[in-house]
């Protein structure tokens, strides 16, 4: 499966956070922590659950403490072994 892009990740997070104004997927947000972007843990976990299903991967329960920014999550998703 092709690598997940920043634009795809932010679109997914926005979709899971749709009562707030959407975040623009520019390079500036790559290293911003999720709470600064307005995403809480429920949004993050919902996005991760969708990614796991769509890509057939499994991420550890500790993922949200290990990957605190979009860059870190992209790296984790794109290197995750198949479930």
């Amino acid at each position: 499966m092709a690598n997940l892009t920043l634009a795809e990740l932010i679109e997914l997070l926005n979709e899971c956070n749709d009562w707030e104004d959407p975040v623009e997927p520019t390079e500036d947000v790559l290293d911003e922590p999720y709470d600064a972007l307005g995403y809480d843990s429920l949004t993050l976990l919902n996005a991760i659950s969708k990614l796991e299903r769509a890509r057939g991967i499994e991420l550890p329960a500790t993922i949200t403490s290990e990957a605190k920014t979009p860059r870190e999550l992209l790296a984790a998703v794109n290197s995750a072994p198949a479930a």
Partner: peptide, 22 residues
């Protein structure tokens, strides 16, 4: 019980921002 941010949060483990919204 399994998310480090919840276990070590400075609040009830079920009231971190995401679960508080839940």
């Amino acid at each position: 019980f399994h998310r480090p941010e919840a276990v070590d949060a400075d609040t009830f483990p079920w009231l971190t921002s995401g679960s508080a919204r839940y």
